[in-house]
Amino acid sequence: MRERSTSRGARRDREFEAFVAGAAGRLLQTATLLTAEPPDDNPGARRLLTGALARTYASWDRLRDEDPYDRTRRNLATRFARGTWSRYGALGRWRRDPGGVLAGLSPPERLVLVLRLHEGLAEEQTAALLGLSAERVRALCMRAATTLLRPPSGPARVAPVAGVSPS
């Protein structure tokens, strides 16, 4: 009996390791976008992903026909939402994290934009995952996209060209 349990545990570990080998890169990229950290310096994203993977591993035997990537992505999103929204409020104050591409967005905007555009979730799936209405998800996504695509408000800076003096 003990040998059977040991072999089952070893099989579980191999399956999980294979999952992590295939999915960790994309999940880390998703976590990095959520935390708005630079890709080469992302300790918050790594902590977020580690927690989500640990939760997935803990429930590995109960997944049955459920997609482990989907489960881990849900864990990642809910951990991010709980951590940032409880810290800053769903619409309250938030700080801009320097460096990341999405640093100019609020945490809810980042979360919705990443789930919708980077992860490819439908509006209804995103709304169900976050416990928001589809209209709220649509509004957050549109506001985030507008913020990212808005041209700079000040005059454009021209980089000097070597050997050419500005006139």
Rank of each mutant, 00 (worst) to 15 (best):
A128S: 13
L28R: 13
E66L: 15
R138I: 04
T72P: 03
T84H: 00
D41E: 02
L117E: 15
D61L: 12
W85E: 01
A144T: 05
R8W: 14
R82S: 06
Q29G: 14
R116M: 01
R93Y: 11
L129H: 05
Y88P: 02
G100Q: 01
S133E: 08
D97Y: 03
L129S: 14
L53D: 00
A52E: 06
E119T: 06
Q29K: 13
A159L: 13
T126F: 08
G154D: 13
V20C: 10
P107W: 13
D65G: 08
G92V: 08
G22H: 11
Q29C: 10
D41K: 00
G131T: 04
R93M: 02
P108R: 02
A128H: 07
R87Q: 06
R26H: 15
R82C: 04
G92F: 12
G51P: 11
R74N: 08
A139P: 03
V114S: 14
E135K: 15
R73V: 09
T72R: 06
V161H: 13
R4A: 07
L76W: 06
G44W: 00
A159G: 06
S86T: 10
T30S: 02
T6K: 11
R73Y: 02
L148K: 04
T35Y: 01
C141Q: 04
L33T: 00
E17C: 12
L149N: 07
D41V: 00
R12D: 08
T147R: 04
A52L: 13
E3Y: 15
H118C: 11
T84F: 00
T35F: 00
A90M: 08
V164S: 10
A139F: 04
R8G: 14
R95T: 03
M1I: 08
A159D: 10
S86W: 14
S153P: 01
A128K: 05
A81E: 08
D61Y: 03
L33C: 02
D65C: 05
R96L: 04
R71Y: 13
A45G: 05
S153H: 02
F16W: 14
L140P: 03
L102T: 00
G92S: 10
G9N: 14
L115T: 08
L49H: 03
R62Q: 09
R79Q: 06
L91H: 06
H118D: 09
D13C: 10
F80E: 01
P160L: 14
A162H: 06
A81F: 00
R64H: 12
S133H: 11
G131N: 12
E135A: 06
L113D: 08
P155E: 14
T6A: 14
G104R: 04
L115A: 12
L117K: 15
A45R: 03
G9I: 04
A52Q: 01
